[in-house]
Computed example of a mutant assay.
Amino acid sequence: MLHTVGDGPIPMALEALAFAKPNKKYPTYNLIQKVWNKCKYVQQADGYTDYSPLWHNDTYTELAKLQIGGGWKSHGVTHIKHVFRHGRLRPLADLRVEYGLPSSMLFQYMQLQHAVRAQSRSSEWHLSPTPVFSLLGDAVSSKGFISECYAILLQYFLGQHPVMVREKWEKDVGQLDGEQWEEIFQGVSSCSLNVAQRLTQLYIIFRVYYTPRRLQLMGMQTDDVCTRCKRVHGDLIHLLWRCPKLHKYWSEVMSTVNSVFGVSMPVDPRVCLLGVLEEHVEEVYTREAVQRALFQARKLIMIHWKSETPPTLREWIDRMGE
């Protein structure tokens, strides 16, 4: 039942939420509405889509004036995709064939045609491209569904923010080629089975954590010194890698990983922080296991983010056994 909600596909139900007013009585309703609108924003779907509702939609001021939705709805014509094709209103003859419209709908069709022209000041209507909408509408199984949605949204996000993220990391860890960046982002899905933990890895990649350096630039604290060593500017690469108090931790973790998995990987930030493993670990299943082990090592640093003491090898081993 993944592809249906009530009598309609999921994207139609979600688009109905997107154009509805928030309801303070139902926080879950509002949360779904916010998430869906954010999904549309990431896809740059800033206008109408194939799944936007035609009727009872206050954003269509001209259509709202008509109040003629009843006759159309009784024949299953409820959303933009039903009456538009490639941004143009479909001929009445086509709609009659597909939806069995009676000849008495001619006048209502003329009203609809006039409202569309008045709304858009043209006979065409710009529709935003929305791959996730199509995926939701066509989905028949939950297997791999979340991963596909995630991949599409990530592709859009990277299309908007690739240069800044790449430049900052390469300044910190050295040059990374296109294949390595592809591995970095593919590794997000294999670093953990837990979606929330995968999000943690994305936060690391996109450098969203509030470091002492960032907090000082924001005017939220007076200094930018590392909370652990108290000596150096606390930027992201320092707190995750360069801090002297982390040297022993990372050396012990990598020594253990190499010993347990029978591999030979360097103590390198590209390996430990970003998961660039393919050139060091050939076997796919071993690589996935190493990804998860190293992610837990990174996760412990995040847990100790504001602590003066670094994580320990014992903590990491215990966490791996959970």
Rank of each mutant, 00 (worst) to 15 (best):
H56D: 14
K25S: 12
S52D: 00
Q44E: 12
M218Q: 13
L246Q: 05
K73D: 05
L89Y: 06
Q67R: 14
Y203L: 10
M1E: 11
K81Y: 07
S190E: 10
T227M: 11
L300E: 06
T309H: 13
Y99R: 10
Y29G: 05
I152N: 03
K299S: 14
D223H: 13
R166P: 01
Y203S: 12
G8W: 12
L176W: 04
K143V: 12
E308D: 13
E15R: 02
T286N: 07
D138M: 10
S147Y: 09
Y99T: 09
L54R: 03
D46I: 00
H86V: 00
L202Q: 09
V173N: 02
Q155P: 00
V35T: 12
H233Y: 00
R228V: 04
G87Q: 05
Q113P: 01
V5C: 10
H82C: 11
V42E: 03
K306M: 09
V253I: 15
Q197D: 15
L158K: 14
K81I: 09
L2A: 11
Q67K: 15
T286D: 04
L54K: 03
P53A: 09
I32G: 01
P244Q: 07
Y109R: 07
D172V: 00
R88D: 00
G71H: 11
H3C: 08
G159L: 09
P311G: 07
L31W: 11
T130M: 12
V281R: 02
Q186C: 11
Q216R: 15
D46T: 05
T227L: 11
R270K: 15
L199E: 13
L239W: 01
Q33L: 12
L92Y: 12
K81E: 09
H75N: 05
P53C: 05
G234N: 05
V263G: 02
L239H: 03
T59F: 08
Q111P: 03
D235K: 02
V271Q: 03
G47Y: 02
G69F: 10
P212Y: 05
Q155K: 15
H247Q: 13
A151Y: 04
K168C: 01
T4H: 13
M12F: 07
L158Q: 13
Q221L: 10
M265F: 02
P91K: 10
V5S: 12
Q155L: 12
P212C: 06
I237N: 06
Q111K: 14
L14P: 01
K24C: 05
A293C: 15
D224P: 00
R96D: 01
